[in-house]
């Protein structure tokens, strides 16, 4: 990979200041960034490690909200996120144990890989992404493949997840990468059901409005029987056609409802 300067600030303020340098990049768990740097797809002048900032770490429950620090590892969310069991289960299924000990929530969201797991939880939960500068609603955060509402140098500090009545994440793994070939997160709240789909759309994580409406009326697997998912705009790759992914969205949604 290209060489760079390494910096590990101890506070969000210092990190923000360090990221003002041109071509500086934030480094969280690095589980996606480092492999892409090995391929020389990134050429940062400086990497600003966020994992030394204690304020960005940890899981805590405030009433109906689970707040997760951005630099909290997947392993920690899996272990400590029991108040939101579906979220903890999702975190415990990302990558593999060694990846989960390094990868973080904030890193995953900022990268917004179209096949990542976490974006579906954030979107289905209607979570709030908190940054050093502002709060961003989940519906406004994701902006297509590998794109988010984050400004240059803006750092996610935490994410506030409203804890649903019922929820489940169903991940169908791409057999090589073990990312989601398609994953569906279903969350039932008092005011309705939200369904978010990852891995399937060329636009990245998305909501499935028809299923949300049907499940808000009747939270049962059969409620989505009559729905069809259009294959248009779904990803076509070695591992699945758009039609196959459309099928998975429906099948996994039903399974998520059954498991919730």
């Amino acid at each position: 990979m290209y060489n760079f300067d390494f910096e590990q600030p101890g506070s969000v303020e210092d990190a923000v200041a360090a990221l003002k340098e041109e071509d500086a990049l934030a480094l969280s768990g690095g589980q996606t960034l480092i492999p892409s740097m090995k391929q020389r797809l990134n050429a940062p002048s400086k990497l600003v490690s966020l994992t030394g900032i204690e304020a960005l770490k940890g899981v805590c429950q405030n009433g109906d909200t689970l707040s997760v620090g951005a630099a909290t590892t997947h392993a920690t969310v899996a272990a400590d996120g029991g108040a939101y069991a579906a979220l903890a289960a999702l975190a415990g299924g990302i990558g593999d144990p060694a990846v989960r000990n390094r990868g973080t929530l904030g890193g995953s969201l900022a990268n917004n890989d179209p096949a990542a797991c976490y974006p579906s939880a954030v979107l289905a939960s209607g979570a709030t992404v908190v940054t050093n500068a502002r709060e961003i609603a989940a519906d406004d955060f994701f902006d297509g493949m590998f794109a988010t509402a984050l400004d240059e140098g803006e750092i996610i500090t935490s994410v506030n997840f409203p804890i649903p009545e019922k929820a489940s994440y169903q991940k169908f793994e791409q057999p090589a990468s073990r990312f989601a070939l398609t994953g569906v997160f279903v969350a039932k709240y008092a005011d309705g059901v939200r369904v978010a789909v990852t891995g399937a759309s060329e636009e990245g994580v998305m909501r499935w409005a028809e299923a949300e409406a049907a499940l808000s009326a009747d939270f049962s697997p059969e409620a989505v029987d009559g729905l069809t998912v259009a294959a248009d705009g779904l990803i076509s790759d070695l591992h699945g056609t758009p039609e196959y992914r459309a099928n998975l969205i429906k099948v996994l949604t039903k399974r998520a409802v059954a498991a919730a």
Binding site: P175, A176, S177, L238
Partner: peptide, 25 residues
Amino acid sequence: MLENCVYDDNGQLLSGSYMDYAMPR
């Protein structure tokens, strides 16, 4: 069940890493 080495029509290897070449786990 898993492994497949695939080229596109231009001769680019589509399964050029463990991200796309599925090794048995």
